[in-house]
């Protein structure tokens, strides 16, 4: 039973949707327009349409191939590490053990902490002179010279990826754990009676039950990681020499540091097209219609 009323639900939803339309939908649509304008805060009198100049400038930028390559590495390694470690954690948490609630409260900590504090912490962990990571690696004899984690162009991106992967494991673990806990116990018992070993049980029961959750979570996480610029901004500001810039952080830097909103909007539009393309291909490949519970 639900109420059937003409106006009431609309009145109740109006404030939320009014704000969403004015301050979310409108800006998004207007950014399409800005992408075709010269819009620099440094030249406020020269604002006007300039065709595809912004796109030309962005796509022919010498750094652009590097930034696209970084974006790919960033997304694949981060999401991959988060998924594998999150799955292992969820599997380990799926059976009760003493103090499990306390344990969960601790391991889900990174999730509650701001990107800023995480970035700060990892900057300090990776500090070349006084940071413990170099110190421990040296003492264990794994390396013989200090690593310049954040200032070596070959290392910077991977150092931020480590921090980003670390941050996102709890999210994967929570989603997968929740899905695992909804698997009926009888199925495991039946599988065991049928003589299924641990690997076969994981593959045929656990995995096939949580497959949809895995797909949804992978999709969401990929979009999230792809668009995430905060840690990069805090840890390296995309440097040295763009070696750790991704499309998202590059866009933010264009707007924030060069104040070139036109070019930033052009990157944004390119960004949106990539996202839509990714979501479309992903949904096609995974036959998402059957994914149920949304």
């Amino acid at each position: 039973m639900k109420y059937v009323r003409k106006n009431e639900p609309y009145i109740l939803l109006f404030p939320s949707f009014f704000l969403l339309f004015i301050f979310l939908a409108y800006p998004l649509l207007s950014s399409i327009m800005y992408a075709f304008q010269s819009f620099k805060l440094t030249a406020p009198n020269a604002i006007g349409f300039n065709g595809i100049e912004n796109f030309k400038a962005v796509l022919t930028d010498n750094n652009f191939p590097l930034i696209m390559k970084n974006t790919l590495i960033w997304v694949v390694l981060t999401v991959g590490a988060q998924f594998i470690l999150g799955l292992i954690l969820a599997l380990s948490l799926s059976r009760p053990f003493p103090l499990r609630n306390v344990y969960q409260a601790f391991v889900f900590l990174p999730w509650a902490v701001s990107s800023f504090v995480i970035g700060l912490t990892f900057r300090w962990l990776f500090n070349t002179e006084y940071g413990p990571v170099n110190d421990i690696l040296l003492k264990l004899g794994i390396i013989h010279e200090k690593i310049y984690f954040l200032s070596d162009p070959k290392m910077a991106l991977y150092s931020v990826i480590i921090a980003m992967a670390w941050t996102g494991i709890p999210f994967f673990a929570i989603m997968l754990l929740a899905a695992m806990q909804s698997i009926p116990h009888e199925i495991y018992e039946a599988a065991e009676i049928d003589g299924a070993g641990i690997i076969s049980r994981f593959w045929h029961v656990t995995f096939s039950y949580i497959k949809q959750t895995i797909l949804i979570t992978l999709l969401l996480r990929t979009i999230w990681v792809f668009s995430s610029a905060e840690l990069i901004y805090i840890m390296t500001t995309g440097g040295p020499a763009n070696s750790s810039n991704t499309l998202a952080s590059y866009m933010f830097m264009k707007a924030f540091a060069s104040l070139d909103y036109g070019q930033a909007a052009a990157i944004g539009l390119f960004f949106m097209v990539l996202l839509l393309l990714f979501a479309f291909i992903f949904l096609r490949l995974t036959k998402f219609e059957k994914a149920g519970n949304l």
Partner: peptide
Amino acid sequence: LIPGVLVLVPTIIM
């Protein structure tokens, strides 16, 4: 699914 960074630039202009 809309990334915050994407909304940020047009929001600032507005």
